[in-house]
Measured scan of single mutants.
Amino acid sequence: HDTTVHINGLRIEVHGASEEILKWIEEAARRGVEAEEIKRWVEEALK
């Protein structure tokens, strides 16, 4: 999927993410993980 995830006011563009990654992002956000940190993880995961 190409999608934009909104976390604590930060937009994260996610290209080619699976449902699993999207669920993981939402879970991390709920746990209060910094949005910048999530963004870094997602970029690494999608390389």
Rank of each mutant, 00 (worst) to 15 (best):
V14C: 03
E19W: 13
R30M: 14
R31F: 10
R30G: 14
L46S: 02
T3Q: 13
G9M: 01
D2Y: 14
A17M: 09
G9H: 03
K23S: 10
E43N: 07
A29I: 15
E34R: 11
I21N: 00
T4M: 13
I38R: 00
I38W: 01
R31G: 08
I7H: 04
H15T: 14
A35I: 13
H1D: 12
T4G: 09
H1G: 13
H15V: 13
I25R: 00
K39F: 11
L10C: 08
L22T: 03
E27W: 05
A29D: 07
L22F: 07
R11E: 14
T3R: 05
L10T: 12
V33E: 08
H15P: 13
V33G: 02
I38G: 00
E27N: 06
H6M: 14
H1M: 14
R30N: 14
K23N: 06
D2C: 14
E27K: 03
E44A: 13
N8K: 03
V5N: 03
K39H: 06
E19I: 13
E36Q: 10
W24G: 01
N8D: 12
H6N: 15
I25H: 00
E37N: 05
A28I: 03
A28L: 14
T3C: 05
R40K: 14
R11V: 15
W24L: 06
W24D: 00
W24T: 01
G9P: 05
R30P: 03
G32E: 04
T4C: 14
G9Y: 01
E20S: 10
E13G: 02
E34C: 09
A45T: 10
I21W: 04
A28P: 00
H15G: 14
L22V: 07
A45D: 01
H6T: 15
H6K: 09
V42S: 00
A29L: 15
I25A: 03
V5R: 02
H6C: 10
D2V: 15
A28K: 01
V5S: 05
I25Y: 02
E43V: 09
L22H: 04
S18I: 07
K23I: 09
E20L: 09
G16A: 07
D2S: 15
E43S: 08
A29R: 12
H15D: 12
E20R: 08
I38Q: 00
S18T: 15
L10V: 15
V5W: 03
V14G: 04
G16Y: 08
I12H: 02
W24I: 03
G16I: 06
R30W: 10
N8V: 06
R31M: 14
G32N: 03
I21T: 04
S18H: 07
W24R: 01
A28E: 03
A45C: 09
I7E: 04
E20F: 12
H1A: 13
A17I: 10
R30Q: 15
L22Q: 04
W24K: 01
T3Y: 13
A35H: 06
L46W: 06
E34H: 13
I12D: 02
N8E: 09
D2A: 15
A28Q: 07
L10A: 05
A29F: 15
D2W: 15
K23H: 09
H15F: 14
A45P: 00
E13Q: 05
K47V: 10
T4V: 15
R31V: 11
R31H: 12
E44T: 08
H1R: 08
E43L: 10
E43R: 05
T3P: 08
K47R: 12
S18Y: 08
I21P: 00
I7G: 03
V14R: 01
K47G: 06
V14H: 03
T3D: 12
E20P: 04
L10N: 07
E26Y: 15
E37T: 09
I25F: 02
R30Y: 12
H6E: 15
G9Q: 02
E34W: 05
I12W: 10
R40G: 04
R11H: 14
A29V: 15
G32S: 01
E36P: 04
E19L: 13
E20N: 09
E27Q: 06
I12M: 04
G16K: 07
I25W: 01
K23R: 13
W24V: 02
S18C: 04
I7T: 03
I38V: 04
G16F: 07
E43P: 00
E27M: 04
I38E: 00
A45Q: 14
H15E: 13
K47H: 10
E19R: 10
K39G: 05
A35S: 06
E34F: 07
R40H: 08
K39R: 12
I7N: 03
E27P: 00
K23C: 05
L22S: 01
R40S: 08
G16M: 08
E37M: 08
K47L: 10
G16W: 08
A45F: 11
T4A: 15
A35V: 11
H6P: 03
V5E: 04
E44F: 08
A35P: 13
I12C: 01
I25V: 09
R31W: 10
E43Q: 11
E27H: 04
V42H: 00
W41N: 02
A17F: 07
E44R: 07
L10I: 14
I7L: 05
L46V: 07
D2R: 07
K47C: 06
E34Q: 11
G32M: 02
V5Y: 06
A45G: 03
E13L: 02
V5H: 06
K47F: 07
L22K: 04
A17N: 05
W41K: 05
D2L: 15
R31Y: 09
G9T: 04
W24H: 02
I38H: 00
H1N: 13
V14L: 13
G32Y: 02
I21S: 01
K23W: 09
L22G: 01
K47A: 11
A28V: 02
W41F: 13
D2G: 15
K39I: 13
E19N: 10
I7M: 06
V5I: 15
I12K: 01
E37H: 08
A45E: 05
L10W: 04
E20Y: 15
V14Y: 10
K23A: 10
E44G: 06
V33F: 07
A35E: 08
A17V: 10
K23M: 11
E36M: 10
E44H: 10
K39T: 05
A17E: 02
S18K: 05
W41T: 05
I21C: 04
R31N: 15
E20M: 11
W41M: 07
R40P: 00
I25T: 01
A29K: 12
A45V: 11
S18Q: 05
W41R: 05
E34I: 08
G9A: 03
W24Q: 03
R40V: 07
T3H: 14
I21F: 06
L46C: 08
A35Q: 05
E19K: 12
H1W: 14
E27A: 08
E26W: 13
V42F: 04
R11S: 14
R40Q: 10
G9C: 04
N8C: 15
N8T: 04
V5M: 11
G32T: 00
E44I: 09
K39D: 02
A45L: 12
R30L: 15
R31K: 13
N8W: 00
I21H: 02
K39N: 05
H6Q: 11
E13A: 03
E37Q: 09
E37G: 02
L22R: 09
A17C: 00
N8G: 14
E37K: 07
I12L: 09
R11C: 11
R30D: 12
L10H: 08
E26P: 00
A35N: 05
E19T: 11
G32C: 01
E13W: 06
E20T: 09
V42C: 02
A29E: 14
E19Q: 13
L10M: 10
I25D: 00
V33P: 00
E20Q: 11
I38P: 00
E36A: 12
V33L: 12
R31L: 14
T3G: 15
G9E: 06
I12V: 07
I7A: 05
T3K: 09
S18D: 09
G32V: 01
I21R: 00
T4H: 15
R11F: 12
W41V: 11
H1E: 12
I38Y: 01
N8L: 05
L22N: 03
I21K: 00
A17G: 08
R30H: 11
V42P: 00
I25M: 07
L46R: 03
E37V: 12
T4K: 06
L46N: 05
T3M: 13
E13D: 15
R31Q: 14
A29H: 11
H1I: 14
R30C: 05
E43K: 06
I12R: 00
A28G: 01
L10D: 06
E19D: 13
R11K: 14
T3E: 13
G16Q: 07
L46K: 03
E44C: 04
N8R: 02
A35W: 13
V42T: 02
K23Y: 07
R40A: 12
E34G: 13
E19F: 11
K23P: 00
E27C: 04
D2M: 15
H15N: 12
E34D: 14
K47I: 07
T4L: 10
V33D: 06
V42R: 00
L46G: 02
R40F: 06
L46A: 03
E44V: 08
G9I: 03
V14I: 13
A28T: 01
L10S: 06
K39W: 09
E20A: 13
I21A: 01
H15A: 14
E19P: 15
V42Q: 01
E13H: 06
S18E: 02
H1V: 14
A17K: 05
R11Q: 13
V14P: 03
T3V: 15
E26T: 09
R40Y: 05
E43G: 06
E36W: 12
E19H: 12
R40E: 06
L46I: 11
G16P: 04
E37A: 09
K39Y: 11
A35T: 06
E26L: 11
E43D: 10
I38S: 00
E43Y: 10
A28F: 08
H15K: 12
G9S: 04
I25G: 00
W41Q: 04
E26F: 13
I7D: 03
R40C: 03
E34L: 08
S18G: 08
